[in-house]
């Protein structure tokens, strides 16, 4: 079982829900549990929100790319932007750390990603955008037709 898709959308906050709905639809054939579905929707929301707020400083008209693929039970999601990038990825990942406290950011985005997914890989450097790769294996269930 294998599939992939790529969607590019504008850096507008309306598209956060679009990204969540798209990924839920894409992963449906993996027969995820409700919890797995919610985990994935949450981390996609976190990464897309980061791209909008931090990558593009809340400026619309910029590209965010959502790439999803699965092979057998493993779902891979890559969310990339061409924005400002992250100077210190390790610091950005610290729980409760935020570079934008004035926007009431909780600083929990990366912590949630790391807790809800099996693997999180963040590639970023100042001026070169950010790429977040998220991987999760769906728990095997008693599937009827395999």
């Amino acid at each position: 079982m294998k599939n992939r898709m790529t969607l590019t959308f504008d850096s507008r906050s309306e598209n956060e829900s679009l990204a969540r709905v798209t990924v839920s639809g894409f992963m449906a054939p993996l027969d995820p549990t409700m919890e797995e579905m919610m985990d994935v929707k949450t981390v996609v929301s976190e990464a897309v929100t980061n791209a909008i707020i931090h990558g593009y400083d809340s400026e619309d008209g910029k590209d965010i790319e959502l790439h999803c693929a699965y092979e057998n039970d493993e779902l891979v999601i890559v969310i990339s932007d061409n924005g400002s990038g992250i100077e210190d990825v390790e610091m950005a990942k610290e729980p409760l750390y935020t570079s934008k406290p004035e926007l009431e950011r909780s600083g929990m985005g990366f912590t949630i990603m790391e807790n809800f997914m099996d693997h999180v890989l963040v590639t970023s450097s100042p001026g070169n955008g950010t790429r977040v790769e998220l991987r999760k294996k769906m728990v095997a269930k008693d599937r009827v037709c395999h």
Partner: peptide
């Protein structure tokens, strides 16, 4: 039905 860390920020604030 759904909340992410943006909701946490509003509640904490």
């Amino acid at each position: 039905d759904f909340m992410d860390s943006s909701g946490l920020g509003v509640v904490l604030g």
